[in-house]
Structure formats: C-alpha cells, structure tokens
Design a protein around this nucleic acid. Structure first.
Lengths: 127, 127
DNA sequence: GATTCGTATGCTTATTAAGGCATACGAATT
DNA sequence: AATTCGTATGCCTTAATAAGCATACGAATC
C-alpha cells in the first residue's frame, strides 16, 4: 500500500533530513554530504532507497547526480511531506540542515537540467 | 527522535488500521479482532508495540482491556494522526474497518472507565 | 480451588534494514 | 588510454521486525 511505503521511507532520520532538504529544491549528492555531514555511502544508499520507492528522482549532470522530489506526488505523499515540513520547522536538526543549505547556496552555480526542470524549486547544484 | 518513533509506528498496515479505528474512540481487543479480522496474537502484539512507544494507552476493565489513543499527544503525533485520517478516508481497507466498527457499535454496551475518561471519544467496549 | 475467558508474552523462523569497507561505474580530464 | 572525480553497489555484520505457535497471566465464574 502506498501509505505504508511512504511511512517506511520516513522512519529513518537520514531520509527525513534528505527529504526535508529536497523540499527546498533539487540538490546534488556532494552537497548533501556537506549539509548532513554524513559519509557518502550512507547518503547514497538512503537516496537509492527513496529512489527505488519513487519518492525521489535522480538525474546525471556530468559527474554529478542531482536529486529532486518526485514530479507527480500522490495525494498521500504530498500530504505527508507537508506534514513533515511542518513538524521539522521547530526541530534543531532540520533547522541546522536548512542553515547549511543556505550557506552553500550562494557559492554554487545554478544548474538547469532538462528532466528535472519539471520538479519543484530551483537547482542548487553545479559543485 | 519523536518523529522517527511515530513514523516507525505508522509503517505497518495493522498498526495503521488500529490507530485509524482508535481515532473514533476507545476500543477493546476483542472488537479489534472483529473489525480487523486478524488473529488475536497479531493484534495484541501490535497494540503492545504502540503502547510501548506511547501512542496508545491500555486499561483493564474486568476481563477486557480497552485501548485508547494517548491522552496528551505531541504536536507531531497530532499532526500525523490527522494526516493519516485524511489519507485513510478514501482507502477501501480503512473504509471497511470503519464500516465494521459502525456495525458493532450498537450491539455493545458503553463503558466508562476511570483513567480512560481523559481520552478523546466515547467508550465502545463492554463486549 | 479449578475452570473459563480475554489478553499478553516467550520462543522460533524469516525478512528487512542500517552501517561500513572495498570496489565498481560513468563522465571528464590529462 | 590512463587517471581522477563524483557516485553507486556488493558483501558483511549486526540489529530490528513480523508472524505464528504454544503458553502464561489476571479476572471472573463455577
């Protein structure tokens, strides 16, 4: 069932952080490393987990891979992501991630990738 | 983290069904068996899971044990339970459970138990 | 006090998942 | 074509979980 799949994706802190960052727009893996301060394997595996379950899309851009939220989220997914955003607002962990994202943003060229253009938000990567 | 715990509770169909029924008010285990059409062990174990994590409270009433939603839910829990209710509205599984609950309701004496009185809704048990 | 009823728990098995290390991959660079 | 860079994956270990069977428990009844 769609709902179970969604909740399974949400019941890990790393994935929660990834999704919460992605809510601001597409991000590449290298930036996730900086923002979450977690090893590359860990991030890559959790992104794969989310990708395999359709919550997230990936697109290669040269050497980098840019991740974005799924373009056509189900009603359930949309509702739960909104709920997560709401709950994350006051949480120190998510707030810290958001701060690091803001810090990285200016030092990073904006990238426009064909496929991902349909996704919400702006492109933050270019490394 | 509170959020992770909540999502871990929500990522199982049986628990989702239990919580969705409990949103209508306290219910005893025997009625859960009728409503979910699942074996007693399964229901009892998932209720224990929810109880150990504080989403749910239990109170003995003679031979029966009546379960209810936690009396003082956190902001996160409240938000997610509301989201679940919203998502469950259109789902055939949850709708079927709700129908079975309605069917049982009239044939069942209303019980007032001391502790649980603080919980939302009405008591459905008495078997 | 023995039995019955409703519920909970211990045990076992199978599945899933998380984390880390090493390594493989594709694209760009040299 | 060899190397480098960013990312993904295979393998391993460990831990958590689900499900079912058998059994234990507490309260009521006989």
């Amino acid at each position: 069932m769609e709902l179970i799949k969604i909740y399974a994706c949400l019941c890990d802190l790393t994935r929660l952080r990834l999704l919460n960052v992605l809510a601001q727009g597409p991000v590449c893996v290298c930036h996730f490393q900086e923002i979450l301060q977690e090893p590359q394997v860990k991030i890559s595996k959790h992104l794969a987990y989310l990708r395999q379950r359709g919550l997230v899309r990936a697109e290669r851009q040269g050497n980098w891979v840019i991740y974005a939220l799924a373009p056509k989220p189900s009603r359930e997914l949309k509702a739960n992501l909104a709920c997560l955003q709401d709950c994350a607002r006051e949480n120190p962990v998510f707030k810290r991630d958001a701060a690091r994202l803001k810090k990285i943003e200016p030092s990073c060229a904006w990238v426009r990738a064909g496929e991902l253009e349909k996704a919400p938000g702006q492109y933050r990567c270019g490394c």
